[in-house]
């Protein structure tokens, strides 16, 4: 078994297998990950993070591959995280996003990691930000995060990246779908992919209308709507120009710093929630108490109130806990 210090040394020596192993540790909840991250965290933050999200089949992997090509042509290295769903039944997953990025496999300036969503339901995986941090620490300059195919309510990506690109394609619903809350609101850049297919112009117009109709605060970012045909390599420069435009906006008035701070707070809250849930509901936890209160005829809310007061009594009086 390798130690955290070994792997960090290999990461610093430029070994890609160290990147891969650290990401596995993060995924598996291996305690060595936190130790290793602590040693490299000062190197994290230089990479620029772009999320690619959208419904299944919209062309996320193809667009990711094309954007990677642009970056490589410009001499920048690219780290890609591609998330696919885990089976809710077996817990297994078939990870196939690499197939559309096959030409990058032999490029030493590109690192691609496939990740199963495991227990997460927000379009990413619990370890997605960790994987970005590892690729960032290694020195990849552009980090592209492709989410699972999302519907209307998977927004984890907005708290994982600097810029969110939402990819849509014609034939997947009318303008009302586009005006619904959700996916459009998390977009920093809206992309109509498959622009050569019938209905693309209509979708473009619907999206522009939806963006124009949205109320937004003074000085807030207005997501541009860009058309492309990623499969033909057409219009991809325009997508990247829109990402760069958003970056320039983020660079002003400390917006990037604020966004990243919000991201880290969300990450801390997630980690605390996860740790608390494990302690509360793990063996010897509150499940038995909940069960017996329910059997006594309490409503779920009565029982929750009882458990919450028991828990918060301990949270707000830490001295009593540590003294007991």
């Amino acid at each position: 078994m390798s130690s955290a210090a070994d792997i960090v040394e290999r990461l610093r020596a430029g070994e890609r297998v160290a990147v891969a192993r650290l990401i596995s540790w993060a995924e598996n909840g291996d305690a060595r990950f936190a130790e290793a991250l602590g040693s490299v965290f000062e190197d994290v933050g230089r990479g620029r993070r772009t999320g690619i999200t959208g419904p299944p089949g919209a062309g996320k992997s193809t667009l990711t591959n094309e954007l990677t090509g642009l970056q490589r042509a410009a001499g920048r290295t690219v780290g890609i995280l591609a998330v696919d769903p885990s089976s809710p039944f077996s817990g297994g997953a078939l990870l196939g996003d690499r197939i559309r990025m096959e030409e990058r496999t032999s490029d030493p300036g590109v690192f691609i990691r496939s990740m199963a969503s495991r227990g997460s339901h927000g379009g990413l995986a619990r370890a997605a930000i960790d994987a970005c941090d590892v690729m960032d620490a290694f020195g990849y300059e552009e980090l592209l995060v492709e989410t699972v195919g999302v519907g209307q309510a998977e927004f984890d990506v907005m708290e994982a990246v600097d810029t969110v690109v939402v990819v849509l394609c014609p034939g997947a619903g009318d303008g009302i779908q586009a005006m619904k809350a959700g996916l459009l609101e998390v977009a920093d850049v809206l992309v109509v992919n498959k622009a050569d297919v019938a209905g693309a112009e209509r979708l473009l117009t619907d999206l522009e209308d939806a963006v124009a109709l949205r109320r937004r605060a003074e000085g807030a970012w207005e997501p541009p709507v860009v058309a492309c045909s990623a499969g033909r390599g057409e219009g991809v420069e325009g997508v990247w120009e829109a990402v760069e435009h958003h970056r320039r906006w983020l660079a002003e008035d400390g917006r990037l710093r604020a966004r990243r701070a919000r991201l880290r707070i969300a990450q801390v809250r997630g980690a605390v929630a996860e740790g608390l849930a494990a302690r509360l509901w793990g063996s010897g936890g509150l499940t038995e108490r909940a069960r017996s209160l329910l059997e006594e005829g309490g409503t779920p809310y009565d029982v929750a109130a009882d458990l919450l007061s028991a828990v918060s009594a301990r949270v707000v009086e830490p001295e009593e806990v540590s003294g007991s």
């Binding site: 077996s90 817990g91 297994g92 997953a93 078939l94 990870l95 196939g96 197939i99």
Partner: peptide, 15 residues
């Protein structure tokens, strides 16, 4: 690949 997934494994298919 599908059978391994159904046995709880994470399968990367390369094409």
């Amino acid at each position: 690949a599908t059978v391994l997934r159904d046995h709880g494994m994470e399968v990367i298919y390369t094409g």
